[in-house]
Design a protein around this nucleic acid. Sequence first.
DNA 1: GGCGTATTCAACCAATAGGTTGACTCACTG
DNA 2: CAGTGAGTCAACCTATTGGTTGAATACGCC
Lengths: 125, 125
Amino acid sequence: MADPLSKAFAALADPTRRDIVARLTMADATVSELAAPYDVSLQAVSKHLKVLEDAGVVTRSRDAQRRPVHLDAQVFDLMTKWLERYRQQAHERYERLDELLADLPDDVPTEPPPHTHPPEQRTPR
Amino acid sequence: MADPLSKAFAALADPTRRDIVARLTMADATVSELAAPYDVSLQAVSKHLKVLEDAGVVTRSRDAQRRPVHLDAQVFDLMTKWLERYRQQAHERYERLDELLADLPDDVPTEPPPHTHPPEQRTPR
DNA sequence: GGCGTATTCAACCAATAGGTTGACTCACTG
DNA sequence: CAGTGAGTCAACCTATTGGTTGAATACGCC
C-alpha cells in the first residue's frame, strides 16, 4: 500500500490511533505516556505509532531513552483537500441537477425520467 | 468496527474505492459501469460498493435489475470536521509554542532548551 | 415460460492488521 | 559495572480484507 492518501486514511481508520492523534494535539508525549490509558500492551501502541509515523501523521525524535512523539498535521491537508474536492463536486452536481429539473417542467410532464445517465456503451463482455 | 468515523476512513483507504467515489461525483452509475475500468471481477467491485455503502458514502436504489449507485458525500463532512478540528488545534498549539519561545529570549540565553515539553510527572510505574 | 442481463451470495484463499509474549538494545543512575 | 526504565524487534496467533470462481436470484423481453 504505497500511496500517501491510502496510508493516511488507513492510519485514521483505527479509533485508538485517532485517540492518540487527539491527545497529541495537546502536547508531545512519550510512548509509555501514550500507552497508559489503553489496556493494550506497550508494544501494540508502539506499532500504532509506527503506522502513524509511516503515514506521516507523526514524527519521533530522540531525547535520551525517550522517543517523544510529535503530531505533524500536514497530511491532514492532503486528506481534507481530497474530501473537499469531491464533496464539492458532488454538491455542484446536485445543484446542476436541481437546476435541470427546474428548467424542463413541461418537457416530460408527469413521467419519471427514464435514466439519469445514458447507457454509454457497455462492453458486452 | 462499529463507529462511523472508522468505517468512513477505512472505506477511503483503498485507491479503487476512492476512484469509484471520484467517478460518482460525475454521475450515478451501475455496478457494471463502475467495474468496467478495473481489471478485477465484478464481484470484487460489488464488495467495494458494499463497503462504501456500509460507510454511508454511497446509496443504492433499484431500477429494474440495475442497482444505480449514488454518491452521498455527507459523511465527508464528519471526516472533514474531525480533521479540521485537530489540524487546527495542532496549529494553535504550534503558535502558542512560538509565542512562548519568543517571550523568554533572555531567560535561557545560549543554551538549547532542555525539553520541548515539561516532564509532567510520569507515572513512575 | 424460457432466455439474457445485472447483481448478489457463498465458499474459498493469500496477505495484512492488530494483538500477544519474550528477548534485546540503549542510555541513564547508583 | 550492575541495574533499571524506555522502546523496539521477532515470532507467533486470529480476524479481517481484497480477491477469486461458481451458483443463485431478480427483472425485463420475446
